[in-house]
Write a protein that binds this DNA or RNA. Structure first.
Lengths: 195, 195
DNA sequence: AAGTGATTTAATCATTTGTTTAATATTCCC
DNA sequence: GGGAATATTAAACAAATGATTAAATCACTT
């Protein structure tokens, strides 16, 4: 495999540190050290810490949305399959990137202006398709609840992981099994909710 | 009403700013300005920024847990009533403190050591009571799922509020109605899930 | 091999930031 | 009312931090 370019090394280090600690707590010198590069290269390639952060956030947000939007908005995919696919996609994605949802949701909450910029011209959700499919099946649950319920059931365990594990509700070493078991259950649960 | 003491003014300002922006992004000078006090008083009363932060986190965590733990762990409260009370408590609490859950969950994620200190000797969840009550009613849902589902359904909309509103899924001005409507639905949903 | 542009480095700058100090003001108690 | 404890202030300090500079090195073309 190719060795990473300087630019890639910086992005990887920044991605890791920003995700773990957030924007303000991550220092440019830490990123440089983690990447194994000279501090000045960070500004040489990305201009500023903020600009680098924007790049990381964009990529992370894309990862988070891509597991959901294309599936939700595809009218050819039936509702049942949408639920199953989203549960599967997120369980896999978030097991590999546990800090992803809390990072994005927290930065979005703390730094709304940044996301106005990033999400401009980006259709985040396509409600009409879902609305139609719910109607077809005679389901009265409203569209927003439908989506929020799925996301809540699948994402919340990751968002609240420290609370869940440190309370003993789920042991740290059993967490992966816990969410994998939920993956299958969520499809049933959502169907029961909508019945 | 009594005028606030200096100590109280600092706590209120710190509480507001830490909740909104997190530890690292909040500067001591901002806190002092927001509180309308001299910068040195912060250290005079609280010793350090970190110590002040710990106080704020403790109080916020207490708020978040108190809406749940006493109810969950009370064997005299039947399961149905537990669900309804927790949904009601959190909807009210979080409408009044929208940043509360994302603040606590993010800081917990970012700064685990701090919470080891704070939650030491604090029984966060009491599973045996719930486990017994689920068994009595012949519900096969496991205890962790039961609790995570309730919390996810009730807390997730607040955690993901920026995403939900800026995507147009729920309009900002309709958000309060949205979660109030969910409050009643959640009881039904949880019962359906467990049926 | 020389020249050219891109990349990397060490050093430095200007601010910001958490904290402390020493002096002044205020409150409390006898 | 005076003196001791408490509270408040302005100023300063040292370290940290994001960014920049100018020189050095590297890669590539001719």
């Amino acid at each position: 495999m190719e060795p990473l370019t300087t630019e890639q090394k910086i992005i990887e280090a920044a991605s890791k540190l920003f995700s773990r600690k957030g924007f303000a707590a991550t220092k440019t010198r830490e990123i440089a050290e983690e990447a194994g590069i000279n501090l000045a290269l960070l500004n040489y390639y990305f201009g500023s810490k903020e600009n680098l952060f924007k790049g990381v956030v964009k990529e992370k947000l894309r990862m988070l949305l891509e597991a959901m939007i294309p599936i939700l908005s595809d009218a050819k995919v039936p509702l049942d399959q949408k639920i199953a696919t989203i549960a599967r996609n997120y369980t896999k994605l978030l097991l590999e990137n546990e800090e992803l949802p809390i990072f994005i949701l927290n930065e979005w909450s703390v730094n709304k202006e940044l996301f106005v910029d990033i999400t401009r011209n980006a259709r985040l959700f396509t409600m009409p398709v879902i609305q139609e499919q719910l109607k077809e099946k005679g389901i009265t649950t409203n569209t927003a609840d439908f989506i929020v319920n799925i996301l809540g059931l699948v994402m919340f365990p990751f968002v609240a992981k420290p609370m869940i594990t440190s309370s003993g509700l789920v042991k740290e070493e059993e967490f992966a099994d816990f969410v994998k078991r939920r993956e299958g259950n969520i499809v049933e649960w959502i169907n029961k909710i909508n019945a």
